[in-house]
Design a binder for these strands. Structure first.
Length: 728
DNA sequence: GAGTTTGAAACT
DNA sequence: CAGTTTCAAACTC
């Protein structure tokens, strides 16, 4: 109902309207504040103005927007782009002209920050930034109200009656408070850094600080000139993003000219009045932001000198700066329709460096999202409902806890970058074809460091360690480290190819064609294979609902009833080894299986899934060791019993299971706490849910096929279906 | 690490 | 569609 016009009018002619409004008149009659002053107080978010109509605008909306904005910086919600906020903005073209000016000022101010004064400078600047952010009544309606607007108004503002009285001393006091707060946050930051970034909590801290500052500065006037830089600097400095997160910010800023970028939102006065001015502003802001980001680094490093842990921090930062967050690579048009196709595994460089990523909304969101989002089929998605931060935190923690090896072997680097983008929303992004194998991979670093953290092996060169590292890497990113010799990795024999991933250096394949440089070949081959079997690249393991529907198997009603889409055909392994895809996938056999002598611990095809049922229904039931092991695992993930084959497969690789009992068990879990910790990410129910959910979205046609009575694999429909193993 | 086993994928 | 071959992972030693 609030049309832009309304908003705009309300913003531009707010004074007259307010004055004309009965409410205003009434409040004005109650308030000693002069109406003119009221206008000013609007922008300053003066506490006294609460008695005036401005209080209406200084409602929790402001806080809400502020919080949402802060959160959006850290956890942009793809479903809630910031852009709409701008739509409500009341910015005028007037602000556009201010942008450049203010931006320049910002740059100057940033440049003026010396290492020693950086912290103080940030502190001093912060209040204004906040004020500008939230002080304006107009900004109440538009969270993204530009700082420049406030600044502009500052210059013309008429000092409010209360503000002048408390200026000097109060400001100093506030600055002191703010600085104290800032230092506290810096300490928090350091602590978080040392213990691994507790990003969420840090955000909360910052948010609290903001609130505190806002309150403190509600009495403070708007005569301070430094604004945006402070805000930006503050964000940059205080948050001191873990590299990947920082990169996210950079990405968000640089990649999203659409204006949905979060950081630019803070400092960039995006005007609603015109696209041209908008673009100009954005360009300006982009440049400024780039510079500010650089400044940020300076500030950070500078502060590092001051901090007790400065050296450590500095090292960490310098290393972190080398990290390039991998981003999802997008598929070229040929297969855009088929969302489940291979995408370039290119390393997603920070956009502002190469600008190869198309700045679209989705791109922003995708960048905001963690790699897990949009991953194809077997790709590991660590994202969960809270996943983004969880993963970030975890990874960052791992990275922070142990100094990374700045020179990661490229093979390990690339292993985690084979991310297949299936999300159609991400298809809008340009494909980045540059593999960028030389980039340090955050996840892998984290994993690597995690290994070190575990203390299991200190020797980086230990074969065992290498192996485990590779496995972790492979698992974490579901980089199928294939070993194809003759298939050229263009057949489903190749796990990489089957998973919709490009082969990477960890692979030991020969004559591999499953690489971005052979994309055409890969896509063509995929087409051919899919023409033969539409489900060829569909997930092999289907969730309970799907499988139950598809197979009509009553035994699949169990929560742990994920089933292999085709069923196995085991004859000698008794479905007790990973030769069996059902077992490998951590699912029980179903009537679709044609296995002989099925002993699948996850559920036999004859329906003897007592294990699962009992596990699900009664934890008290004692079973043999193998069943018990399975039970525990399934209890932990009762809601998502499915364990992706790749995970299991990679998990146990190199950890050969000598015992049949162990073989019967669930995917071998890391024996060390380290491993458990690492894999908590991937074993989390949410993660598992993602694994299952993503393919559904990505391969709708396939899933439709899945639901069809006819299976692509005619063998599945053979009379063997009803054959019951004699042993069972 | 080499060799064997296994079962899916591919082929006929 | 069934049988066979090919293939690479899983597994054993």
């Amino acid at each position: 109902m609030d049309t832009p016009d309304k908003t705009h009018i309300a913003a531009t002619s707010s004074l007259s309207k307010f004055e004309d409004s009965p409410v205003f008149n009434y409040i004005n009659s109650l308030s000693p504040i002069d109406p003119i002053k009221f206008v000013q107080t609007d922008h300053s978010f003066n506490s006294l103005s609460f008695t005036s109509p401005s209080s209406v605008f200084a409602s929790p909306q402001i806080i809400s927007h502020r919080e949402s904005r802060l959160k959006s910086i850290l956890s942009p919600d793809p479903l809630k782009p910031e852009l709409p906020l701008y739509a409500n903005g009341n910015k005028t073209s007037k602000v556009d002209s201010e942008t450049v000016r203010v931006s320049d000022q910002c740059a100057e101010q940033l440049g003026g920050l010396t290492p020693k004064s950086s912290a103080r400078g940030v502190t001093a600047e912060l209040p204004n930034a906040i004020k500008c952010d939230f002080g304006s009544p107009a900004s109440n309606l538009v969270s993204s109200d530009s700082i420049e607007t406030s600044r502009e108004r500052e210059g013309a503002c008429v000092p409010s009656s209360f503000a002048q009285s408390s200026k000097v001393n109060l400001r100093e006091r506030q600055h002191f408070k703010n600085e104290v707060n800032l230092r506290e946050i810096c300490r928090i930051e350091q602590t978080e850094e040392a213990a691994g970034w507790d990003w969420v909590s840090l955000v909360s801290d910052v948010d609290v600080l903001y609130s505190s500052i806002i309150e403190n500065n509600s009495e403070e006037e708007q005569d301070q000139e430094t604004v945006d830089p402070g805000m930006t600097t503050f964000v940059s400095t205080v948050l001191q993003l873990p590299q990947d997160n920082a990169t996210d910010l950079e990405n968000m800023v640089s990649i999203s000219p659409s204006g949905s970028c979060k950081l630019s939102e803070i400092r960039e006065p995006i005007t609603q009045s015109g696209e041209i001015g908008d673009l100009q502003d954005k360009d300006q802001a982009h440049d400024i932001l780039s510079s500010s980001l650089q400044k940020k680094l300076v500030v950070t490093d500078s502060r590092a000198k001051v901090d007790e842990k400065g050296e450590k921090r500095g090292q960490s930062n310098s290393k972190q700066h080398k990290i390039r967050r991998r981003c999802l690579v997008f598929e070229t048009g040929s297969h855009k329709k088929c969302s489940s196709l291979i995408l370039s595994q290119s390393d997603c460089e920070v956009a502002h460096e190469d600008n190869r990523l198309v700045p679209s909304k989705s791109s922003v969101h995708s960048l905001s999202m963690l790699p897990g989002v949009g991953l194809h089929l077997n790709a590991v998605a660590a994202t969960s409902k809270n996943g983004s931060f969880v993963k970030c935190k975890t990874l960052a923690s791992a990275r922070q806890l142990i100094s990374m090896q700045s020179t990661m072997s490229s093979d390990s680097l690339t292993s985690s970058q084979n991310i297949l983008i299936g999300s159609s929303a991400l298809n809008s992004m340009e494909k980045v074809s540059d593999p960028c194998d030389n980039k340090v991979k955050v996840v892998e670093n984290a994993l690597q460091t995690s290994v070190s953290v575990g203390g299991e092996e200190d020797d980086q060169n230990s074969p065992r360690k290498k192996r485990f590292k590779q496995e972790l890497v492979g698992e974490s990113q579901v980089c199928k480290r294939c070993n194809c010799k003759r298939s050229k990795c263009l057949k489903l024999y190749c796990e990489c190819f089957a998973a919709g991933l490009y082969c990477v250096e960890p692979c030991s394949c020969l004559d591999c064609f499953n690489k971005p440089m052979h994309e055409d070949t890969v896509l063509e081959t995929r087409r051919l294979i899919e023409s033969r079997n539409p489900l060829a690249f569909a997930p092999k393991v289907i969730r309970s609902a799907d499988s139950a529907t598809e197979f009509g198997d009553e035994t699949n009603k169990t929560p742990a009833s994920a089933r292999h889409k085709r069923g196995c055909n085991c004859r000698r392994s008794s479905c007790l080894k990973k030769y069996c895809e059902c077992f490998q996938g951590g699912v029980g056999c179903s009537v679709s299986c044609r296995c002989e002598g099925c002993q699948n611990a996850f559920g036999r095809k004859d329906g003897s899934e007592e294990t699962e049922y009992k596990v699900e229904e009664s934890e008290a039931s004692e079973k043999n060791d193998s069943s018990d092991t399975i039970k525990k695992d399934e209890d932990e993930h009762a809601d998502v019993p499915l364990i992706h084959p790749s995970i299991i497969s990679r998990f146990s690789r190199g950890k050969r299971l000598r015992s049949s009992l162990l073989d019967v068990g669930p995917p071998p879990m890391p024996s060390t706490s380290l491993k458990l910790k690492t894999f908590d990410i991937f074993d989390s129910p949410n993660f598992q849910m993602r694994l299952q959910a993503i393919p559904e979205d990505e391969t709708p046609q396939n899933h439709n096929s899945n639901c069809s009575p006819t299976s692509p694999n005619s063998k599945r429909l053979s009379p063997h279906h009803h054959r019951q193993p004699a042993g069972s």
